[in-house]
Design a protein around this nucleic acid. Structure first.
Lengths: 225, 225
DNA sequence: CTTACAAATATTGTCGACAATTATTCTTGA
DNA sequence: TCAAGAATAATTGTCGACAATATTTGTAAG
């Protein structure tokens, strides 16, 4: 039997750990956007064979973090304003639906936890004013929990296991220190309220507006440059 | 230089062809839902090594057609009514957005082609009444073109390269010969009209209702059993 | 000096073999 | 006969090597 007895141990293979590590390095910009990955080099770095490295790489491709061309290899996706806007469109769509479902499916306990989270984020925000990044991570945490609360496994996979890594990548590398912090906080509160009231229709609308506002923010900034 | 000169030849590797063939076999139910795939057996069947087979398998996992457990292997995803409903929810969301964007971005020519397609499908439908499957394929073709018309590459990837294969898999194996054929056709016409009118808001609403109706159809059928 | 082509180098695609893990069969005891 | 454990077989994870393709370097002609 496995080491840990009944915690449904998620057996970790070598490829798994390399996959996770590479994902973090890509998201955090330690491996540059658009750069080509050298299989021999990476395999040597992790002290594994190219086979298990390629296993990890193919999974990163599945997440949308890498692109692959036959006989040429993998490269990190290139971040562009266009792609960022596309992601916002998809988030607006999917998270709106997730929010509607969350209003129907989230338990009282889950909703309370979400409220507490919001309070904590608000406090730390006012305390250490400069830490824009942690604030953004808190924002994503909020969105993450709502998607989980939708109970729709497909939504969870698409958003939490794929898109959100791209989102974090943009935040790390573009630095989304938006001037929407206070507004966004209030919007979060209103969304929770709608969920608590089991008003799925309103919850969806509020979430869509919330994300749409971020997108417009980026579009405006782009046009003024 | 490559054989074909400037048609941006998509170089086909062995893994590519096996990937495509396996995908079709899974979608069409030639490889059973929920069944475990034996790597040695498949490799022997295709006369390739396990390495290149695993390359193909990992890509199928990325498409959501296969699941993988460490030290146990790949198995075809199991189709369930719950998952089918989840897919409908996601389609409703994403295709609604795609339709809104299509109304903004599709060219006159693209729209005309779409109309012609609809006419053809309607004719063949009335001619060979029994062929429910081809009719369904035509439906998916319609949806496919609208997504392409959205111009959003992320949407295109998520829907055309992932979800639609799952949808086709359900149709093949559950046989969605719905009684909605005539209604669906009119709905398609109305959607095209909204797109032609550049009324994105209406186009989105119509598409969402169109897909929602299919979902409700499945839900009702499920409840009456 | 630049361009076009050829040789050499490096990288990816593919292969077969071994190690680690899982599944099956066989044995043994009650 | 059945159950539990050991031995065996089969499968997946990992490795290193070779073949096919792409990139770079080198060379020669214009």
């Amino acid at each position: 039997m496995q080491p840990n007895t009944f915690t449904s141990s998620p057996i970790l293979t070598r490829a798994d750990t390399v996959f996770t590590d590479l994902r973090q390095r890509i998201v955090e910009g330690d491996i540059f956007t658009g750069s080509k990955l050298s299989e021999p080099e990476l395999a040597k770095h992790y002290e594994i064979s190219r086979s298990t490295l390629r296993d990890a790489l193919s999974r990163l491709e599945g997440c949308g973090l890498l692109e692959r061309k036959a006989n040429i290899g993998y490269r990190v996706v290139t971040l562009s304003t266009e792609q960022l806007l596309e992601i916002f469109r998809v988030r607006e769509s999917l998270e709106g639906t997730a929010c509607r479902l969350a209003a129907k499916n989230m338990s009282k306990e889950q909703i309370d936890d979400l409220r507490k989270l919001l309070v904590i984020h608000n406090q730390t925000k006012s305390l250490q004013q400069g830490e824009a990044y942690m604030q953004e991570e808190g924002d994503l945490d909020f969105h993450f929990r709502i998607v989980m609360g939708s109970g729709n496994k497909l939504l969870i996979r698409l958003l939490c296991e794929e898109l959100y890594y791209l989102v974090r990548m943009y935040r790390f590398q573009f630095g989304m220190a938006s001037p929407r912090a206070k507004k966004a906080f209030r919007e979060h509160e209103n969304i929770i309220q709608a969920i608590e009231d089991k008003d799925g229709e309103l919850a969806e609308i509020l979430m869509r507006r919330h994300i749409s506002a971020s997108r417009l923010n980026v579009e405006n900034r782009m046009n003024t440059l």
